[in-house]
Simulated scan of single mutants.
Amino acid sequence: MTIRVLLADDQALVRSAFALLIRSAPDMTVVGEAEEGERAHELVRTTQPDVVVMDIRMPGVDGIEATGRIAGDEDLAGVRVLILTTFESDENVLAALRAGASGFLVKDTQPADLLAAIRTIAAGDALLSPGATRSLITRVLRTPDPAVASAATLDGLTSREREVLTMIGRGLNNAELAETLVISPLTAKTYVSRLLTKLDARDRAQLVIAAYESGLVQPS
């Protein structure tokens, strides 16, 4: 299967470099490039990519609003957004995750890590490495947004599901969930699927946000 990627960044040089890298991977192809968010949304609708590599800071419609438009478009339910950030200064990453992004990546990442991140997002495994996830959320998730996820949101969860959600919030993947809880990988996957349904979450990134904003996991 070839992963279809769309690039959204206002810097032509950055887009060109990313496009060259992605096209060098045998399992990926670039289906479009956009210089701002409105154009990105238009191209996503016409090209139906698997993953959008989205910069946050763009003129006109920025990456956060564009992500919200894509995530809120029922015709684009299978499209995942990978956010690019400068990390040290861009605290809008959390807003992008709340808007429906599936993960994030720093712009100065290694080429192999970008390709791995795209594969991760395309496979439905939101966010990136647990270490990077914890580091970013610790920096930006200081003030929970009760409108997005409150403790009441978790009322319908069993104690085991709360335990699984806590571990997801701490960055564990399905294999690590299975090992920690001494269950099969299939059972771990089933728990994650139930959480997605019960919390009306788009993907794993939304579960991480819910875990923090409900208080199950505290930024350290």
Rank of each mutant, 00 (worst) to 15 (best):
E42G: 08
L43E: 01
L43Y: 01
L43I: 05
V44D: 02
R45L: 15
T46G: 05
P49L: 07
D50N: 11
D50H: 08
V51D: 00
V51G: 03
V51S: 06
V53D: 03
V53F: 09
M54I: 05
M54Y: 00
M54L: 05
D55N: 04
D55T: 06
D55F: 10
I56L: 00
I56T: 00
I56F: 00
M58W: 03
M58I: 01
G60L: 06
G60A: 03
D62E: 01
G63A: 00
I64C: 02
E65Y: 00
T67R: 06
G68I: 11
G68F: 11
R69D: 03
I70C: 03
G72K: 00
G72Q: 03
G72C: 11
G72A: 04
D73C: 10
E74H: 09
E74G: 08
E74P: 14
D75F: 05
D75R: 13
D75V: 09
L76F: 04
A77W: 10
G78N: 12
V79L: 06
R80K: 08
R80N: 07
V81M: 02
V81R: 00
L82F: 02
L84E: 09
L84W: 10
L84D: 11
T85M: 01
T86D: 13
E88A: 11
S89A: 15
D90E: 12
E91P: 06
E91H: 05
E91I: 15
E91R: 11
N92P: 11
N92I: 07
N92V: 04
V93M: 07
V93F: 04
V93I: 11
A96T: 06
L97T: 04
L97R: 01
L97D: 01
A99L: 00
A99H: 01
A99I: 00
G100Q: 04
A101V: 09
G103P: 13
G103A: 08
G103L: 08
L105K: 11
L105D: 06
V106Q: 07
V106W: 02
V106C: 07
K107N: 09
K107W: 07
T109W: 07
P111A: 13
A112Q: 15
A112D: 15
A112F: 07
D113R: 14
D113T: 13
D113W: 04
R119T: 07
R119S: 08
R119V: 12
T120S: 00
A122F: 11
A122N: 06
A122T: 09
A122Y: 09
A123W: 05
G124K: 04
G124M: 08
D125F: 14
D125N: 11
L127P: 05
L128N: 07
L128I: 10
S129A: 13
S129K: 12
P130S: 03
G131R: 10
A132V: 10
T133W: 09
T133C: 11
T133D: 06
S135G: 09
S135E: 08
L136Y: 00
L136F: 08
L136I: 06
I137H: 09
I137P: 08
I137R: 09
T138R: 15
R139G: 13
V140L: 10
R142N: 13
T143K: 15
P144G: 14
D145N: 15
P146Q: 13
P146A: 15
P146H: 11
A147I: 14
V148L: 14
S150A: 12
A151G: 10
A151R: 15
A152F: 08
T153W: 06
T153Q: 06
T153M: 12
T153Y: 05
T153N: 08
L154E: 12
L154P: 12
D155L: 15
D155N: 13
